[in-house]
Amino acid sequence: MKVLVCVKQTFDTEAKIELKDGKINDAGINLIINPYDEVAVEGAIQLKEKKVAKEVVVVSAGADTAMDAIRTALAMGADRGILVKQDVDADEYARAVALAEVIKKENPDLILAGHVAADDGSSQVPTRIAEILGLPHVNVITNLEIADGVATVDCEADGGTATYEVKLPAVISSQVSWNEPRYPSMKGIMQAKKKPVETVDAVAVENKVKVLEYALPEAKTAGIKIEDDPEVAAPQLADWMLNTAKIEVVK
């Protein structure tokens, strides 16, 4: 079985966001694999270790720097990579079209991705890819079992956990709690340098969503801070909760 994993390069989640000339300033920002996608890479590698998968291909659409995200995934244990060169301002539609074009040629049995990117928070691309390719999909999985061409997955659902079955090939997107991604070993990092990575240009399509402006949220300011004995502080906090935040106590 061939597994293809879509990874996006994103800002480190510790990054502080600033604007420059009305855009998000990426200067000096540490770039990582989107944490949700990293979990998908780990899931794919585990399938290979269990001999369920034969090959793990990593695909990333983005700037040249996305090569680092691909190399990281290869160092974790993926077999080869494809960098789809695309403008960083591509929207979810354009991203999905570009990735689907490459996936179609690769014809994998399973497509994995994170269910959301930690930067734009859109939760659209995996589902859109599935629709373009006419494949089943299921989102936000926390467990995956594959048998006889059918994936059985546990998913985070609204108000509980749902178990779904989908026939492969399918697009399946991960929640971060699915697994604990490994750190690449030194040997893995060395090997990754020799693994093949192909570079292709993204299919040119117009964005569907237009960004009008970026802004920073109003900075919250610190309010009252009590540094006193708990016996003094607790009644004040209770008073604030009841009279300012106006909460109701359950009797």
């Binding site: 800002f11 989640t13 990054a15 502080k16 966001i17 604007l19 998000i24 930690a118 930067d119 734009d120 928070g121 569907k208 969503v209 237009k210 960004v211 009008l212 402006e213 970026y214 802004a215 920073l216 949220p217």
Partner: peptide
């Protein structure tokens, strides 16, 4: 839209 989990905001137009 709150992006970067709310560290920034993007105003977008959908037609």
């Amino acid at each position: 839209r709150a992006i970067y989990a709310g560290k920034a905001l993007a105003k977008v137009e959908v037609t």
